[in-house]
């Protein structure tokens, strides 16, 4: 594996993936698993960045980092089974390998949250790229003000990191969970996340928001927050897209004049409006 990395440098071929040995797999919901992959040399990355993950024979897809970088070099990847590649990844067992390129993309701007209240809005699998942010805020509680998480899922069974959510609460984060459709065991909120702004007790004008989820949700949340007084350059989202290369060459992730892989995937509402990215 070392040879591979050496090779990587020697040829300067950005398309050659590193080998990530899967050390642990955690089943989070019926179709979402968390993979912990170990590379020989620890890789540094920031919340909001992504890796191109591949299974040879199936292809390569972008997956956001789901954890903060650790010294043991085990990026965690939260993956929902939706297509060919994710299905192939789900068929892997510990001890097997995924290909790993990256990290790519800009990552979340962290300095803007210094000393401010933070609103995190997540929909479905959109919680995955936001998790390292939450971990960061928990790790350094003094750097931010009050942190509120609004997290919507389709059903109670589809709430990802349900156990961890309890830990987050204990660590001082205000969590509002909601589902589109309840079941017999659910006596929590029902409805869209954007219906729960009153639960966020903060001065929106002085706060910062990080949003990820389905596009309709992102658009609605950004619009609402802007209306509520939050400056558009502090409403931050990360966008999902079809990608083949991750490095701004293949063209698949275009959004207006930008490429989500190299100019994003993290954008502020300001950029989104000015560059007509979400249209």
């Amino acid at each position: 594996m070392k040879g591979n990395l050496k090779n990587n440098k020697k040829n300067g071929n950005i398309y050659i993936p590193l080998n990530g040995r899967i050390e642990e797999i955690i089943q989070l919901t019926s179709d979402v698993r968390l993979f912990k992959a170990k590379t020989e040399i620890p890789i540094d990355y920031k919340p909001g960045q992504f890796f191109m993950i591949s299974v040879w024979g199936s292809g390569e897809i972008p997956i956001s980092v789901t954890s903060l970088p650790e010294k043991n070099g085990m990026p965690e990847l939260c993956i929902r089974k939706t297509g060919v590649v994710t299905t192939a990844i789900h068929s892997l067992q510990t001890g097997q390998f995924v290909g790993l390129r990256g990290p790519y993309g800009n990552g979340f701007p962290m300095d803007i949250s210094k000393g401010r209240d933070v609103v995190i809005v997540a929909g479905g699998i959109g919680i995955a790229p936001l998790r390292p942010l939450i971990q960061q805020f928990i790790k350094k509680p003094n750097e931010t003000g009050k942190v509120t998480l609004l997290y919507g899922s389709r059903t109670p069974d589809e709430i990802i990191f349900r156990d961890e959510v309890e830990d987050w609460k204990k660590s001082g984060i205000t969590v509002v969970l909601t589902v589109d459709k309840g079941n017999d065991n659910w006596n929590g909120n029902i409805g869209l996340v954007t219906g729960f702004w009153p639960e966020v007790r903060t001065n929106f004008k002085n706060a910062v928001a990080y949003i990820c989820g389905p596009e309709v949700m992102i658009k609605a949340a950004m619009r609402d927050l802007f209306f509520l007084g939050m400056p558009d350059d502090r409403i931050i989202t990360t966008l999902e897209s079809h990608m083949k290369c991750g490095v701004g060459k293949c063209g698949h992730c275009y959004a207006g004049p930008k490429y989500i892989c190299t100019d994003g995937p993290v954008f502020s509402y300001k950029e989104i409006k000015e560059q007509s990215i979400l249209k």
């Binding site: 591979n4 090779n7 050659i16 080998n19 299974v55 060919v84």
Partner: peptide
């Protein structure tokens, strides 16, 4: 051996990926 869509428990070495 390879399985379609998966890679089996492959052991990797320098020669595994060729440019």
């Amino acid at each position: 051996p390879l399985t379609k869509g998966g890679q089996g428990g492959v052991s990797l070495s320098e020669k595994a990926i060729e440019d």
